[in-house]
């Protein structure tokens, strides 16, 4: 692993807010997201459907489309704020610094262009026109890197399987050796076997190139094997960030606990834990903690005061009133209480 924790992060996201306009007010899809991404690191961003993880990715990529809009925040990529950059300046950064492995593998490629042409246009857009002689071996090498045969070069997307298309997308993402790759549910549409192979391809390529990666998904099991740190998102906010080991050994936020307990097991049938309570109206979050309506340990303070992110132990940050700082500055460990209410 080439992760460098002591260097400044390559990507700093601060107070990112992305809202969707609706006739009955704005939906607060991403409401103040903060995190750092270090060089060579893989950060998992998990949460249930609609929690804002993909929207957060689009916010970072500056690809939010109406009715959505970035309301506030900073996305610092190697120190440069992407928000407020002109479209032209942004275009120069795209793909060279910040690449995307998209969500829907099936439709992410232009059906009327050959695979090679779609990788080529990204290269040409940033490096200028060049002879096919130079580009072709490059593309073939990219295809080899993601485990695709050379004949894919001349094929159209509809002639590929889902897994192959996703590999093409990976090859495309690494074409210009970007600093950061965002993989937005890149393996969600694939069956478990192909999912595993594609995920391994992604890790292999990532390690070979030393890029940093944000992996968005809802599969905690897959995440556990792929990422260095996990950020758990709920209703537009990150509620906990922790190294993957700590997250699975000792999840602090009640929502993280429920999420991890809900990972299906082959050995036993267990009920889905996260069924209690309802999600609030995303246009009108309650005052205090956003998870209060579904939290099994909800306290009076949760209904009034929003919790702030606190570091409970090395590298593990959580936003929850269950972990207040005590008078002497040490943290009260209520994790056991949380697990056995």
């Amino acid at each position: 692993m080439t992760t460098s924790w002591n260097q400044p992060p390559v990507l700093k996201v601060r107070g990112l807010k992305v809202y969707y306009e609706t006739p009955k007010g704005d939906v607060l899809a991403v409401d103040g997201v903060n995190f750092d991404l270090f060089k060579g690191e893989t950060l998992g961003l998990v949460g249930e459907s609609g929690c804002g993880k993909s929207t957060a990715a689009m916010g970072i990529l500056q690809l939010v489309t109406p009715p959505g809009r970035v309301v506030d925040g900073e996305v610092l990529l190697e120190g440069h704020n992407l928000l407020g950059m002109s479209e032209q300046a942004l275009r120069a950064v795209r793909w060279i610094k910040l690449a995307l492995i998209p969500q829907g593998a099936m439709n992410s490629l232009n059906p009327t262009m050959k695979v090679s042409a779609q990788i080529k246009d990204a290269i040409i857009a940033h490096e200028g026109k060049q002879a096919n002689k130079g580009i072709k071996p490059r593309i073939l090498e990219l295809l080899t890197m993601v485990g695709l045969p050379g004949r894919v070069y001349d094929l159209y997307p509809h002639e590929l399987s889902g897994g192959m298309k996703q590999r093409v997308c990976i090859a495309m993402a690494i074409a210009l050796n970007p600093t950061v790759i965002i993989a937005d549910e890149s393996t969600s549409a694939l069956d478990v076997v192909v999912q595993r192979v594609v995920a391994q391809t992604m890790l292999k390529v990532k390690d070979a190139l030393g890029v940093s990666m944000i992996m968005i998904g809802h599969d905690m099991g897959l995440m556990a094997q792929m990422v260095d740190r996990i950020a758990v998102m709920y209703a537009g906010k990150i509620v906990e960030i922790a190294p993957v080991k700590e997250m699975f050994a000792e999840p602090k936020h009640p929502y993280s606990q429920l999420l991890i307990e809900s990972v299906p097991s082959l050995k036993e049938r267990k009920p889905l834990k996260i069924t209690e309570g309802i999600t609030h109206d995303p246009r009108n979050p309650p005052p205090g903690c956003i998870f209060q309506l579904r939290c099994p340990f909800v306290m009076d303070i949760c209904r009034v005061q929003p919790p702030v992110m606190r570091e409970t132990n090395e590298g593990q940050l959580v936003a929850c009133h269950l972990y207040p700082e005590s008078v002497d500055g040490s943290l009260i460990n209520v994790a056991d209480v949380a697990r056995n209410p």
Binding site: E87, R91, A92, R94, W95, P102, N107, N110, D121, A125
Partner: peptide, 17 residues
């Protein structure tokens, strides 16, 4: 609304292209 449009924009291609 197609996914490939998202990818095309993320790639930083010329808008006219």
């Amino acid at each position: 609304g197609e996914d490939y449009m998202h990818l095309a924009r993320a790639k930083g291609l010329n808008p006219l292209y």
